Amino acid sequence: MTLPPADSALGKLMATLPRPGRVEWIGVRPARGVIMQALDEAIASAGGGLDGDRYKGGSGKRGITLIQAEHLPAIAALAGRDAVEPALLRRNIVISGLPLIALKDRRFRLGEALLEWTESCDPCSMMEAALGPGGFNAMRGHGGVCARVIEGGRIRRGDALVPADA
């Protein structure tokens, strides 16, 4: 998708966000298939991911995964559950108060770190096992985003997420 020019009416609307986002939860996946570890803070490494996460040393395209807090109840409802714990969905950071889709193709500050949207974080087949039959489809459209770490730094629960160009 080609974005409209930044100085166009639609470009200005797309750049205007309701308020900063807020870090509600942080977790790392030490290895494939193991339970995520919830943290109060984490260190993001440039070109990698969060210290202690299995994706830290990767290509960086999927360095950190984020999911929108407001989508958790929707995923739970679609999966026929009362609630869904963030660790079950295997995303690193839960953000509230900001529509993550508005960060598409943008850089943003998360705590001390500078991140860049790389792609949507589509669900994988593990969600079927984690959420039960239909879990994969319950997450479609709600899987969050992947981001590359441009500048490393500390990220804490309660930190703001703001566009870098704001």
Rank of each mutant, 00 (worst) to 15 (best):
P5E: 13
A6I: 14
D7M: 13
A9M: 14
G11P: 13
M14V: 12
L17V: 09
P18R: 12
R19F: 10
R22I: 10
V23F: 00
V23I: 10
W25A: 08
G27T: 11
R29E: 15
G33V: 15
M36D: 11
E41F: 06
A42C: 05
G49P: 03
G52L: 03
D53H: 06
R54P: 07
Y55S: 07
G58D: 08
G58W: 03
S59P: 13
K61E: 15
T65S: 12
I67D: 06
E70F: 09
H71W: 08
R81W: 07
D82H: 09
V84G: 04
V84R: 00
E85Y: 08
R90E: 09
R91E: 04
K104S: 13
D105H: 14
F108V: 04
A113M: 07
E116F: 03
T118L: 03
D122F: 07
C124Y: 01
S125V: 13
A129N: 13
F136T: 14
G141P: 08
G141T: 11
G143P: 06
V145A: 11
V145C: 12
C146M: 15
V149M: 02
E151F: 00
R156T: 04
G158T: 08
D159K: 03
A164T: 03
A164P: 02
D165E: 15
A166D: 13
